[in-house]
């Protein structure tokens, strides 16, 4: 049988909890419940976030496209995150500021709260308030929100090259970045 797999609603929700448990455990154990580590990258002090993030992206990208090429996973049935170019550029830029100020993002705020951080609970309430703000202002932002849609555009598709070239490029890019980060962190430790 080709994945994605089909389950009843109850089974699907149970699977969601189990996958979430692994998600939360790896976030917390990786140090991503800690706002000092989460914001460290922006001060060039702690590169935990890009290290965890890019490692996870590369592992999942490699596995996803390998399973697809081996016909074990039907990519046509995988929901590709849709691109809306300008709203996502603006959203990402605004998100970076909120991330820096609060010290969390939505998933890591939950991980921070689960490790006993009450400031993360305040951020979680703020995220709810921000969602409400968006819903209230929606009539004014809707035009922008639905603009510059590109559907399920992916880098290999729009560049027109094999996905393995893009993955290979990202591996080389990440390896160089990790090397620089390790060197920079070591230098920082030696100086202090």
């Amino acid at each position: 049988m080709t994945a994605p797999l089909v389950f009843s609603q109850n089974a699907s929700l149970l699977i969601a909890v189990i996958l979430g448990i692994f998600f939360g455990m790896f976030l917390e154990r990786g140090g991503l419940g800690n706002p000092h580590k989460l914001t460290g990258v922006f001060y060039l002090a702690d590169f935990t976030v890009p290290k965890v993030m890019f490692t996870a992206i590369l592992v999942a990208a490699f596995g996803l496209y390998l399973l697809s090429d081996l016909k074990l996973l039907d990519m046509e049935r995988v929901w590709i995150v849709p691109t809306f170019f300008w709203p996502q550029i603006a959203g990402g830029a605004l998100f970076g500021i909120g991330f820096l100020i609060s010290g969390y993002c939505p998933g890591t705020a939950v991980a921070g709260f689960a490790s006993g951080r009450l400031d993360a609970l305040v951020t979680m309430i703020g995220i709810g308030a921000g969602s409400l703000l968006f819903a209230v202002l929606y009539p004014f932002v809707e035009g922008f929100y639905v603009s510059s849609g590109m559907g399920g555009a992916t880098l290999p598709k729009i560049i027109g090259i094999s996905h393995w070239f893009v993955i290979a490029f990202l591996v080389v890019f990440a390896a160089g970045m990790f090397y620089f980060m390790e060197w920079f962190e070591r230098r920082g430790r030696e100086q202090s």
Partner: peptide, 20 residues
């Protein structure tokens, strides 16, 4: 800062159709 940052994150992740 925890609350204000949260509001910005909540708003911007709706605008971008998701978060990190």
């Amino acid at each position: 800062t925890a609350f204000t940052g949260g509001i910005i994150i909540g708003f911007s992740s709706r605008l971008a159709r998701g978060c990190t």
